[in-house]
Computed example of a mutant assay.
Amino acid sequence: MKHIYTIEGMTCNGCKAAVEKHLRAHEHVTDVAVYLDKGEAEVTMNELIRTDVLQKALPEKYTLTEKNSKNIFTSNKTSMAPLEEEKSKLQQLLPLLLIIFGISVASVLLHYKNWSWSEFMLDFMGLFFIVFSFFKMLDLNGFPESFRMYDPLAKQLPIYGWIYPFIETALGIMFLMRFEIQIALIITLIVLSITTVGVTKTLLDKKSIRCACLGTALKLPMTEATFIENAIMIGMAILMLSF
């Protein structure tokens, strides 16, 4: 029987070889074909293997989910797959939504007595960059690989993925300390516009990859929420520059 799985976390031929090696190591796997461009693996097995068992066979950086199955005995379950996938994505996005909500609340509380939209936006942007850079720094080795899967500049210039968390930290400090705001806003527009181009292309291509906005500690799917998140920050930067 053959099963097709979506593999998230593959960034190069080395990843492809690693996935093939670990999946082939299972005693009931007879053949494995990994497609890096599709982010998929076709696994032929002589006995049904649970998806969670195959997942445990892979290193933590890779996430394996079943896409479809050619096993006639499980075909009656495929109609539930889209609903289960949708719920899974919503559950995975919950940390991102909670963090953005927390940053918003904190920014409001800082100015609720003497309200100022410009001050609110500066603190929101500052806290946003500090918090998001912190999560990226939790895995400085794994983040660049995930980031360059969709960021155009990181694809062409790998070192950009390594310094990106520090760029975010610097921008966060500049906004919170009100230091060279104009420069920080221009850098924000450039950096997030580049990333948004890559996010948009990924969404249009309907590729299933992992969003690296919160590093690799949280397994967030690349969805419209990521595009909206960047659009909000870009919109704030444009508004601040127009003041």
Rank of each mutant, 00 (worst) to 15 (best):
G172A: 04
R178N: 12
A170H: 04
A154V: 03
T223F: 05
E85Q: 14
M240H: 12
R24C: 06
G9E: 00
C213V: 00
M125H: 13
P165D: 01
V19N: 00
Q182N: 13
T226S: 01
A57Q: 05
M149G: 14
Y112N: 08
F128P: 00
I4E: 12
M174I: 06
E66K: 15
V34D: 02
A17R: 14
I173P: 07
G39C: 10
L64E: 02
A231C: 03
F73Y: 13
P144D: 10
M45C: 05
T51A: 11
V43F: 08
M236Y: 15
I181R: 03
R178P: 03
A81F: 14
N68W: 13
N141P: 00
I173A: 15
C211R: 05
L192G: 03
K70A: 14
T6P: 00
D52M: 01
V43A: 06
L157E: 00
I159V: 03
K89Q: 13
C12T: 08
D52I: 01
A25S: 14
I4M: 09
E119V: 02
M177V: 11
E229C: 12
I99M: 11
N71R: 08
F147V: 08
L189I: 00
V197G: 04
R148N: 05
L220F: 07
C213T: 04
T44F: 05
Y150R: 09
D139K: 09
L110C: 09
